[in-house]
Every structure is written in structure tokens, then in C-alpha cells.
Design a binder for these strands. Structure first.
Lengths: 210, 210
DNA sequence: CACCAGCACGAACATATGTGCTATAATAAA
DNA sequence: TTTATTATAGCACATATGTTCGTGCTGGTG
């Protein structure tokens, strides 16, 4: 079903209101914001918007309007707990970091980047040692705190002998582990299983420019 | 000043409430949510939280609490208006795309990725033609719709002769334009100024994995 | 024409909700 | 101890706000 222009207008107004004020409007605020003359008109159209799945309303709750469109994922604040660089292990997320928002640096993202996964933290890449994984100096990697990964997943692995972390696709093979750079033009490297320690799974890479 | 444990508790509750319900709690909901026995206690502590800059309140507005901490950037829905690939120009954002949220695909990010810039849209990278800019097949590039860029900025440039778009750092030199890959190990390419057409500025690259 | 569904209006109502006031306990300062 | 200062309770009040209901206006249908 197609929305009437008045319903579109109401939906837009809720959007604007929400992004300006961070809380939903009342029916009467919609009335004056959209030049409508009666609260019941808004109530009528809100009921339609709800049955069409555009919003959700909590009965008898003031300002109890939730927008269902265009916020499939919530905001999420992930701590940037340190840097990842060749030559040093990545910092382990300690419980107190999750606790308060006061971890030195944080990054705000939305859930559709993490796809609902928990235990997410971020690292800033230092140096050019990950270019073969198409990760540049200064990039941010979103990590999930895990100790094992599936074959083919991108992981942060600590190479004990080399004293080095690197971000590669992980493949457990017969007697060895194959670490495959994301960049298909680069060759894989092979290491002994006892030499690798998985420190986390990479779920996204973010690079900001300019 | 340090927050009392009750104030921390209230702040945390507002956080949790907001992320579950998308609208702020009432004073009485805070009362029952934090096991407090009187509305005036909450009022008392909210006043302190406000004077300390943790929240903002609108007088006489129900649920008029705004969290000032941890949402420096708002949610933002950017349209993914197409693909970028060598051999075809990038799609131009037409006005109707910004209009309705109904552009086929959208990406939800937060403002601290765009740093407040307007006219932002996204493209999905098709193919491996941008690997020298450390951009992989499937990556998403956030673009700002501009026609000129500063020297050194990463831009999407259309090479008329080659009939190709590419993402490179842009440098206007004496009689030529230098296009420098992000990957420092790769060489720059030089083209005639009349052969290039800037199609947008790259403000971020996002890669989702697994 | 009568009838009806979709939509808009305005007013009245019930309650959800912020605020103010007073009293009391807990704590710090003198 | 006495005196401020701070923190908590409890309650009453004003109003902010969702809901209901009767009415009128349109256009389409039999």
C-alpha cells in the first residue's frame, strides 16, 4: 500500500524531530509541525502507519513512537582499546573497558556493521604491515573477541616465533596453518599450528579520509 | 566532580532504556528501574546530572531527557546508490534518491564517520581495479558529492579517454594531474587535466567481513 | 437518491508525567 | 554537641498528552 502524502509528511516530521531532539514528538507537536488541525487526525494516520509497519506505538505512553524504518540497527559505542602493529600483541579487552564509556577513545557505529555480534572492540592499525590485507596505516579494525575461528575467516593471529600480529584469512590445513592475505595478488604464508594464537576475528575495516 | 553511584546508576539506566525502547524514560520509570523510592530523588539527581553536562532536560516536556554523553554523532542513513567499477562512470545522486528512504539499499552510519558533511552517499566497489588504493571487491566507499577537491584528497575521478573511474589521491601539478594510489608501494599515474572529471570525494571506506 | 467507506475535525475525558513543597535521615563542618 | 549541607521520602498539584466519540465532508456505488 502506498502512503498518503499526509502520512509521508508525518513520517518525515518524526524523522526530523527525532534527529533534532533525540526523543519522539507528541501527537500535538505533530499537529503543529505538519499544519494539521486535530490530534485525532494524527492519531488516525499513526494507526495506519503502525499497521503498515512504519512505526511502533506503545499505548498510553507519552511520546511512545518508535520508528521502525531506517533504524534496523541501534547505535553502538565500541571502545578503541589500542593499536595493532607488527611486533606487539594486540591489547586484550579487559572487563573494565566494557564497563564505563570512559575508555580513552570510542567509536560509534551501528549494529548493522557488527550484525548483532557481541564482544566487539576496535583497534587502530599502526604501520604498513597489513597492506597485503588491504589495510592501511591509521585504519580501524572492528574485532570480535574470540579464540577460534572458522576456516576462511579473517583473524588477528599472533605468530609466537616471529613476535608479530597480522590480519589474515585463516585456514587450518593438514599439518600447518595457511594464512592468506586478503589481497589476492599476494602469496599465502604457512606456519606451524603451535606457532599461531588467534586473538580475535575481524568483522569490519573502517578507513576515514580527509 | 565525580558522580555518585546513584547518579551513575541512573545514567546507565537511561542508556539501557534508550537503546531498548528508542525513547527516553519518565522519572517514574527511572524510579522503578533503579529501585529508588521517590520521584523527587530522581528529580534531584537529574538536576545534578544536567548541571554536570551529562544530560539535557526540557522543562515540562514528558520524557524530555537527552543524553549528551556517548552520542556525539547521530544516526545517519546514507543511500547506497550503485556500484563503482572500472569502465563505467559512477552513478550520480539524483534528488529523488535523497528524498525517500526507499532507495533500494541503504547503509546506516553515525555522524562521526561523515564528520558532519552533507551530501553523502555510498557506492559498492565492484572488482579489483582499486586494490592499489587498498580497496577490495565488495568494499563500500562513502562519498561526498563535490566537483572539485583539494590537492591530496582522495577522489573518484573519471578518466574520459580510458573510460574508467578510479579512486586516487588527487594532485593538480603544473601541466598535468597526478593520481597517487593510497598504497605507497604503487606508482602514481599522470594524466592531462582535460582528461579528468572529479565525481566526488571519498570520505571513508568500509569493509565488512564474514 | 440513499448508502457507505475513507478521511478530517473539534471537543471532552482519563491518565501519564513533570514539578513543588515539606519533612526526615545521613553526613560533614564548626 | 550544634549547625549547615546533602540526600532521600512522600505527597499533592498542574499540565502534558494519548484516547474516544460524535460529526461533517468527500467521492464512489447500487
Amino acid at each position: 500500500m502506498i502512503l498518503s502524502s499526509k502520512q509521508q509528511q508525518i513520517l518525515d516530521f518524526i524523522h526530523r524531530f527525532l534527529s533534532r531532539r533525540h526523543y519522539p514528538p507528541t501527537i500535538r507537536e505533530i499537529v503543529s509541525g505538519c499544519g494539521i488541525s486535530s490530534t485525532s487526525v494524527v492519531g488516525y494516520n499513526l494507526k495506519i502507519l503502525e499497521s503498515e509497519g512504519y512505526i511502533r506505538r506503545r499505548p498510553d505512553v507519552s511520546r511512545g513512537i518508535e520508528l521502525l524504518t531506517s533504524h534496523p540497527g541501534h547505535r553502538l559505542v565500541v571502545p578503541v582499546i589500542g593499536q595493532i602493529a607488527a611486533g606487539e600483541p594486540i591489547p586484550v579487552p579487559t572487563p573494565d573497558i566494557w564497563d564505563v564509556a570512559a575508555s580513552a577513545e570510542t567509536l560509534e557505529i551501528t549494529e548493522d556493521l557488527t550484525r548483532g555480534r557481541g564482544g566487539v572492540y576496535a583497534l587502530r592499525v599502526k604501520g604498513l604491515s597489513m597492506v597485503d590485507a588491504l589495510i592501511n596505516d591509521g585504519d580501524i579494525v572492528l574485532m570480535q573477541s574470540v579464540n577460534v575461528v572458522e576456516n576462511g575467516e579473517m583473524a588477528a593471529v599472533w605468530l609466537k616465533a616471529e613476535k608479530e600480529v597480522t590480519l589474515k584469512r585463516f585456514y587450518a590445513e593438514d599439518r600447518r596453518v595457511r594464512l592468506q592475505p586478503a589481497n589476492r595478488q599476494m602469496k599465502a604464508i604457512y606456519v606451524a599450528p603451535e606457532n599461531v594464537e588467534i586473538q580475535g576475528r575481524v568483522i569490519a575495516v573502517i578507513r576515514q579520509l580527509g
